[in-house]
Write a protein that binds this DNA or RNA. Structure first.
Length: 755
DNA sequence: GGTAATACTTAGTATACCACGG
DNA sequence: CCGTGGTATACTAAGTATTACC
């Protein structure tokens, strides 16, 4: 396997590499920026992850980290700097589910399982029969061969679009079956609309009719009462309204650690000064001399007072919110009332990016009607801007799904108001996503064998592409788009990995060809993993790293656009992220099969489900900060466990004496007593076990977030099928919101569903 | 062919809410 | 009835991918 390829490798090196380093102008440029950036980095302070609050255990982890890094380091200076920075900001992961982490994930290593894939998976034929006619081919789905029923409905949709929407119904509605449900609650448009039984739009049209009330703006600023003062240089100072408002943003964050960070303070102060009058600007020149504590205390008191409000007052607020929701929280899209996800405009405040963000502390400005673009249908009742104001624009673009948009001032990106996940428009897309992943399942073997062949390619770009794809597939890494330097925190994904993010060990911990990954991914969450890889991959990585600086790109001949173009050729609709979806879902399905024991009771089965879910979360590296109350709640649980243990001891003692008693007396009654004591012991043992299992479960979940994978990566039909198969109420797995989002899956998946 | 803009999904965390035991 | 703690929801940042543009 090896010899000749080593040869091959070196050929390539000499061939393409030399030019490589400088061929890509932009990449090169990038690097220079990055160097500069290092200096900046130095003054950057620790990120949220060094948070003081998760004290003990957290610190321990950190220390471990540090050791590890020392251990592995010993190189370049710059690197050290970086490492130091990393140490500080990184949220340590290891120390806990180590076994799982180290070999990637608990689930069977994918590559290894390749050979038996065929036996494991159902045949393609079977697959096909499961598919509904409107399945995947999504984009180029042709409306033709639809069941007549669908046909009618499709027609109906068209008709109705042309008419005026809501006033009518229940007349000659073709959906007679549903009609009466519609009637009873006039607000609820046809109880539960099964959009998944209807035909989808083709050719990029997203809707035919769209009407909504526009956004809800942030409440205007309310100036502070005059007795609440701001002090500059020990002296009280009355601020102009604008300056005061921005000051309150800072005051509200005062006990947050980040108000002590230089970058945060610098950015804040700069933007604050922009809001000041010229007199204020002249006077206030040093943030260090600003005293916001009175303001801060005032807000604390306010929120305290809010908590203490009477029930009636709270009720009133609740009702007002409900009213707002009813008025602005819904839209009509194609004849159906749909819930809007975020109808409130983001209020002004100080920007806090995640991780080590260069723009933290900047002022996120207030959005006015003049900033807002409204999207709705021409023939709808357009939302009115607040009195005396105008929208920036009203447009009628039915090729997009958003209702409202505006441009945000921190990154200059566009923000949108869109529909809830329970809406047709989101649901269809979600469904389609899983269908694409299922199509990948059918050809993943082919793709895998191809990229393995490509490891031997004589073209550098192809080798890089194939190794990157291997990582994306095996480790579920994100694609890794390039990002603008200095605009965001320094994070990477697969294609943007740098040499400094991996370490190669020909041999480590008894395993050959180990790659150690250590980088910050999305949301500055650390990815740390040690993975044994194929020799060829290892050799390739050595090749890619040769003659490079730590801050150089590992895959200098690759980016996400190249990769996705390639993937597109392998399978229609295939992109890098499909692998994550596919691997997450297939892992869940497989783990469920493996972990569910038929004889177990429902709680035990649910535990198995959670374990399967957790395997996926670990695979996808979905982490969370340990809940603030974690230690305490663990303690509570432990107390319960201890109490249960005592109880058990008591019960056992009683059993013993009952037995002794029975031995002496030998009568029915004492025998019965023994039996009942025995049962009691059993029951208590069971309860104890449950508690202990719960404790384990919680401990294992300390830093792992299950929600993200549940919501975004796991084909809900797998879970629904599992529930049906084992008689688990679906409510045990999905809460109300989740059931709404996955209504399509709950409705259509039966217990034989195979992903 | 590369870059910027756009649209939409995925992400972790702050906070609201609600059930429950004292 | 109240506080507590645990879950659900709100929020919005940060990704991915496609499209528009030059």
């Amino acid at each position: 396997m090896s010899g000749d390829h080593t040869h091959n490798d070196s050929q390539i090196e000499s061939g393409s590499r030399v030019n490589d380093a400088h061929k890509h102008k932009d990449k090169h440029k990038d690097k220079e920026h990055r160097h500069k950036d290092h200096k900046k980095d130095k003054d950057r302070e620790r990120s949220k992850y060094s948070n003081s609050e998760h004290k003990d255990s957290e610190k321990k982890h950190r220390d471990k980290d540090r050791e590890k890094m020392k251990h592995k380091d010993g190189s370049v200076e710059r690197h050290k700097d970086k490492e130091k920075r990393k140490e500080e900001k990184i949220r340590s992961l290891d120390g806990k589910p180590k076994k799982e982490k180290e070999n990637g994930f608990a689930s069977p290593p994918r590559i290894k399982s390749e050979p038996d894939n065929d036996s494991f998976y159902p045949s393609p034929k079977h697959e096909k029969s499961l598919k509904r006619e409107r399945d995947d081919d999504d984009s180029e789905f042709k409306p033709k061969k639809i069941k007549t029923e669908n046909d009618k409905k499709a027609k109906k949709r068209k008709q109705e679009d042309e008419e005026d929407i809501k006033p009518k119904k229940k007349t000659k509605d073709k959906k007679g079956e549903v009609a009466d449900g519609k009637k009873k609650a006039k607000k609820e448009p046809e109880e539960k609309w099964k959009w998944w039984e209807e035909e989808r739009y083709t050719d990029g049209v997203k809707w035919k009719f769209l009407e909504h009330k526009g956004p809800v703006f942030a409440p205007p600023y309310e100036p502070l009462p005059s007795n609440i003062k701001f002090y500059y240089d020990e002296k009280p100072m009355k601020l102009s309204e604008k300056a005061e408002e921005v000051a309150t943003f800072f005051a509200k964050m005062l006990d947050h650690e980040y108000t002590t960070k230089d970058i945060f303070r610098k950015n804040f102060f700069k933007d604050w000064r922009k809001e000041m009058t010229s007199e204020e600007k002249a006077k206030i020149t040093d943030l260090g001399k600003c005293n916001f504590t009175e303001m801060s205390d005032y807000f604390k008191a306010q929120s305290e007072a809010k908590k203490q409000m009477s029930k009636e007052e709270k009720q009133k607020i609740k009702e007002e919110n409900e009213r707002l929701l009813q008025e602005y929280g819904f839209c009509v899209m194609d004849n159906h009332k749909e819930r809007i996800a975020n109808f409130r405009i983001e209020p002004p405040g100080l920007f806090r990016g995640r991780g080590d963000h260069p723009k933290m502390g900047m002022l996120k400005r207030r959005i006015r009607p003049e900033d807002i673009i409204i999207n709705c249908s021409k023939d709808s009742k357009h939302p009115k801007p607040p009195p005396g104001t105008k929208w920036k624009e009203v447009r009628h673009d039915n090729k997009v799904t958003w209702l409202v948009s505006w441009t945000e001032n921190i990154q200059g990106s566009i923000k949108y108001i869109m529909l809830n996940p329970s809406s047709r428009i989101k649901g269809e897309k979600d469904w389609q996503k899983y269908e694409t992943a299922r199509r990948l399942k059918k050809c993943v073997d082919r793709i895998r064998s191809q990229y393995r062949d490509d490891w031997k390619s004589k073209e550098m770009r192809i080798r890089q592409r194939s190794v990157a794809l291997y990582f994306i597939d095996k480790l579920a890494l994100r694609a890794g788009n390039e990002k603008e330097e200095g605009e965001t925190a320094d994070t990477v994904g697969c294609c943007s990995l740098r040499v400094e993010h991996i370490k190669l060990y020909p041999e480590k911990d008894g395993q050959e060809f180990v790659v150690e990954f250590d980088f910050l991914g999305k949301d500055s969450i650390r990815y740390y993993n040690k993975v044994p890889v194929e020799k060829r991959v290892f050799k390739n990585l050595q090749l890619f790293m040769e003659n490079k600086q730590p801050e150089d790109d590992l895959f200098d001949r690759l980016n996400t656009s190249i990769l996705n173009k390639h993937l597109q050729e392998l399978m229609d609709g295939l992109t890098a992220k499909v692998f994550r979806t596919y691997n997450a879902s297939i892992t869940l399905q497989q783990q469920l099969k493996e972990l569910t024991s038929p004889e177990e009771n429902i709680p035990a089965k649910i535990l198995s489900y959670n374990r399967a879910n957790r395997a996926v979360a670990i695979l996808c590296n979905h982490q969370r900060a340990p809940p603030k109350t974690f230690e305490k709640s663990m303690q509570n649980l432990q107390t319960k466990i201890d109490a249960k243990k005592d109880q058990l001891a008591d019960a056992k003692r009683e059993l013993k004496s009952a037995k002794a008693d029975a031995k002496v007396r030998r009568d029915e009654k004492s025998k019965k007593a023994v039996e009942s004591k025995k049962k009691a012991v059993q029951r208590i043992e069971e309860q104890l076990m449950k508690l202990e299992v719960q404790a384990t479960d919680r401990e294992e979940n300390k830093q792992i977030a299950l929600g993200t994978s549940k919501l975004n990566y796991l084909d809900p039909r797998i879970s629904v099928a599992w529930c049906k198969k084992w008689g688990i109420p679906v409510e045990k797995i999905y809460n109300k919101t989740q059931r709404e989002k996955f209504a399509w899956a709950i409705d259509m998946a039966d217990e034989d569903f195979e992903f």
